[in-house]
Amino acid sequence: MNTYIYDDFLNKGRYRRALNKVEIRLTDLGLNGKIIRLGSIKNVKEVIQAEIKNGVKTIVAVGNNATANKVISAMITNKAYGFFQKDVLFSIIPIGDNNSIAASFGIKKEEEACNILLARRIKQIDIGIAGNNIFLNKAEMVSEQAEVKINEDYILEINKKTPVKIINLNDDAKLSLGQRIDPYDNKLNLIIEKKPGDTTFITGDDFKISGQGNLILDESIEVPLPVEVGLIKEKINIIVGKDRIFI
């Protein structure tokens, strides 16, 4: 049984056509299931917990990065998920802008997402955490004054405007050293690319960031500094496409 979680913004008329296409395709493939609209519910966590207890096999976020983040966050923080984790899969049907998570899964278009759901190619990946929030792809910031303490051992000082990315699952095929980022290795990678030939690459599982500015998770959630960034190992089973960015 599949449950599809539709984000609020899909109520807008301009997404109706894309949703119709998805619903028709899912019906054709025999994948239709329960639809839950985030706009009509107050407690996402409770609703997802009930679905897991009722034996849902796949929870599908329909929307963008923010939708995926909300759904995964609600999934992994409830008690039922810990018990049924191995049996529950997660996937995305990308609609609208800001869909880098789906792109990293190898899912580019909504109709293609339906076929990928049917193929059920499964990978178990780590999840990043920043404070009380989670991220699948990356946490990033551009700060002029910040310090990153890594694994309690050493401190990286940032004094000039520098783009810092802490990546779990790479969504950028052009990123230098991006091919070395592995969402199964129980590690996060910090990458700073100021200019070609000036790259910093550090592997760790605990990054304490202090200074000015915000950390942006999965291009959708802002977390003010200071914040501690870590990892939950092998936490989620995802359905991915052949063209995913990772192995």
Binding site: L156, E157, T200, I202
Partner: peptide, 14 residues
């Protein structure tokens, strides 16, 4: 395993 770029300053036990 680790690369510290030319514009970066690191303090501590590496």
């Amino acid at each position: 395993e680790t690369i510290i770029g030319s514009s970066i300053k690191v303090k501590g036990n590496f």
